[in-house]
Amino acid sequence: MTLIEKISIELGAPEPWPSDVKLFQPYEAEQILLPDNANCLATQAFLKMCQLPYAVEPRPNAEAMSPTLKVPFIKAGRFVIAELEGIVQFVNGKDITLTQPLDNDEKSNLRAYMSLIHSVLEMAELYICWVDSETYNEVTSGRNGSVYPWPLNYIQNWNKRSQVIKKLKTLGWYDKKLEDVYSEVETCCESLQARLNDQKFFFDHGPTELDALVFGHLFTILTTPLPRSDLANIVRNYPSLIDLVKRIENEYFKK
């Protein structure tokens, strides 16, 4: 979270949720990639769970507009806040929270699982999109470059790819093989399923940002057509996670 966000949370606290909130993200049909889409969807799910109105505003350069260089970000009145964590805190600052009934232990649990998803599912998605050459050539390069004219699309792709690879290298994911990535995802899904334990949501009393994040990632993995469908196949092995995704989709997105 940046300093600007911190200030916006403090300053924006007393104001009610404005009616013209815009959520900026890349074009869903032509441009957006798996990890970005997952995060955008997670944020949308969170806002819907809080019953806060927003309008999606697709922009080709949403990533460059964002204060943290990551999508999605929202514009609420005078404030611009990026990424799910920042938005959750911004919303909490207005006394709207999904985690009110949780005790400290459960809150730390929630934080731990959110970091698990960020450090496993998101990395795996980045790996598939940018490192796996088949997916990169067939899907990622075309989509990521689609909004730029001819020579620029190659430059932008190359630029973005080297950034992602650097990130994966420092976090120890670049050296993994595809099978290792799949087994990491399996372990992650397994532990999510064990945590969910056939409940309706991760915490008894109702949906939280963790459910939103899980929904965002799993729904995107399940519905995005890729040359390698292994990730989706792995997720399909966990029926209670699929149920969760369906439940959230029906409850919040099909109205």
Binding site: N109, R111, A112, S115, L116, H118, S119, S191, A194, R195
Partner: peptide, 18 residues
């Protein structure tokens, strides 16, 4: 047990990433 193992993995990730 599976639930503890799952929580252990999540907390380990929290430690690793923070």
């Amino acid at each position: 047990d599976p639930k503890q193992r799952s929580e252990c993995l999540a907390l380990k990730n929290l430690v690793q990433s923070k």
